[in-house]
Design a binder for these strands. Structure first.
Lengths: 340, 340
DNA sequence: TTGTAAGCGTTATCAT
DNA sequence: ATGATAACGCTTACAA
């Protein structure tokens, strides 16, 4: 049923031209007689011609596709990154391959291996692979990291500080002096990063910070943490992400503990749904679409740098200055004065 | 920096063999001497050989990739479909290209055109294109629809009836006799489908159903609809999707209208966050991952049917029997006895 | 301005 | 069991 798609030869034959002329006309218009050009375009439309990208790739070495790796398409953070990436890619005529690795490093490795030959580069959002593997991969193909840093590999990470600083200031103002950080997965660079920064910012003000042992980044994890929260004697909680935050919030509500009267809660990511709760969840969000777009632009710059132009000293291993992608604090109802 | 990847010629040369032997060894093991086989595999690993998929495609005509079109990666429904699709594709060694078309039909057309040459087939979730264009596309390449039906094009749609029937039964039981359907976008097949089915099921019981004019499927749309809800004199609301439902719920709460005491609310899709609200939102969910997986399996069956095997009467235009993908009613706090 | 021809990395056919 | 060799559809010197 799907009849063979037309090739440049079909067009050439139809018009009594040679394939190379057709190719030229279709690729670099201007290098061919105006009327011929027109006839070719006409014929191409007529025949429903589409360039065979595989055949082109084999010659040019360019795949015009790039990969985006996501541990979990289901987590809202990734969606915005993907959307931003998709749009930036589209602007440059690139197609996007997505790899959902479901938190499994085996699948991640697998996908990476398979996709390698099909794309010009990859964006890795919170990959599970260890630093060495990531650096290794970056040796073999253009790679840009999102929400993670690895030495020598370009990365795009929003600047956590402004949003978190605002949140801490607000907590201070409300009288909170003891905070509990609900850690995410230990292997997640971003969880450690947020923790460190929270520590630093609180130290500046003399706020005490404790932290739970690391756990998953899920709603259930948050619910489980309710006991720890109550036992900790802390008046406010900063969760690694909104899922955890909402988990505690709902569990505390279920136990009759009033938020924010007895405990204040702040999350991270400003996921869709974080303002559906009662009270709405205060959270620190990042411009994730821009993050995704920036990552792709950086990736494509690297891709461009690889082949054409003077093989200059090369754009080389730059990282987007985070100042350009600041997080924002969303002050919402889950924050209130410290009790007592 | 990314040195040229090794080819089968490199392996052949290294081992003093011919390229065809190497190719055979790598593709159909068994047709080559066991020890040669082993040496080749060894060398391949050594050299970090990866098959050049573009080169392979040009010969075989198979791309080993498929496309998944999504109007909005940001809406949870799509994510689950994508995850299911990704996994089913992965099982068969297929890579997935995703197209986020941001509700724009121009971008949709564009992406479809561009991707056509790069994939073996596409899964279209709620495409904007009209029936004719979809049928047309299906003429030129394997296509499977999700959450939409078009004559002559295979599609996978969960069975709305069981979930909706349960919801209606529950509403009846609670004494509701007048319902308001908050319509989604008119162009969305699924919105019309849900409406029709609701009409039918309610008629069976003698429940009256009204419907709003169509609107967007967003949270804001729900908030705006609050007036209509209150003016309608209906005791319960069925929203086209959870976003709308949560929008009304929050807006009613803001106005001091008690849910479910004064108005009961049911949504569709069981999106993440639908149970974060207070009260949690009652909703009708579908096994979306399975839907995605089923769509891909059907697509790959069509792809397989295109070339190899006896060109039999062909699997042809089947549609997955919906009985296999039933929706489920989630009874939650937003439902209560009809007032008065 | 246009045509000829070589070659990209594979697979597949046909010999050997 | 293995090796030549010819495609696949396209780009790109180079020649006309």
């Amino acid at each position: 049923m799907p009849k063979q798609p037309a090739t440049i030869y079909d067009i050439a034959e139809l018009l009594g031209l040679s394939a190379s002329t057709v190719s030229r006309a279709l690729n670099k218009p201007g290098r061919v007689n105006a009327v011929t050009q027109h006839r070719i375009e006409e014929a191409a439309r007529e025949l429903g011609y589409r360039v065979n990208t595989a055949a082109r790739s084999i010659k040019t070495g360019r795949r015009e596709m790039l990969g985006v790796l996501a541990p979990d398409v289901t987590y809202t953070v990734f969606q915005d990154v993907l959307r931003g990436a998709e749009q930036a890619a589209d602007e440059r005529g690139y197609l996007v391959l997505v790899g959902e690795t479901s938190q499994s490093s085996a699948r991640e490795e697998d996908w990476l291996a398979r996709v390698q030959t099909a794309v010009d580069g990859v964006v890795l959002t919170s990959p599970r692979a260890d630093d060495a593997s990531v650096a290794d991969l970056a040796e073999r193909m253009p790679v840009v990291l999102v929400n993670r840093r690895v030495d020598g590999v370009p990365s795009v990470v929003p600047d956590v500080e402004p949003g978190l600083r605002a949140a801490v200031a607000r907590l201070w103002e409300l009288g909170h002096r003891r905070l509990l950080y609900l850690s995410g997965p230990q292997r997640l660079w971003m969880s450690r990063h947020r923790h460190e920064l929270l520590d630093r910012l609180c130290r500046e003000r003399g706020i005490e910070v404790r932290a739970t042992a690391s756990g998953s980044g899920s709603f259930e994890r948050g619910a489980e943490a309710a006991d720890e929260v109550l036992a900790s004697g802390c008046t406010a909680v900063v969760a690694f992400n909104d899922l955890i935050a909402i988990g505690v919030l709902k569990e505390l509500e279920a136990r009759g503990v009033r938020v924010p009267d007895q405990v204040s809660i702040v999350g991270f990511d400003n996921i869709r749904g974080s303002d559906y709760t009662s009270p709405p969840l205060a959270t620190i969000g990042a411009p994730l679409q821009q993050v995704g777009a920036a990552a792709v632009r950086e990736l494509l710059a690297a891709v461009d740098g690889v082949a054409p132009s003077p093989p200059s000293a090369a754009a080389g291993r730059r990282r987007t200055r985070p100042e350009e992608l600041p997080t924002v604090f969303h002050d919402r109802g889950s924050l209130g004065p410290a009790p007592g």
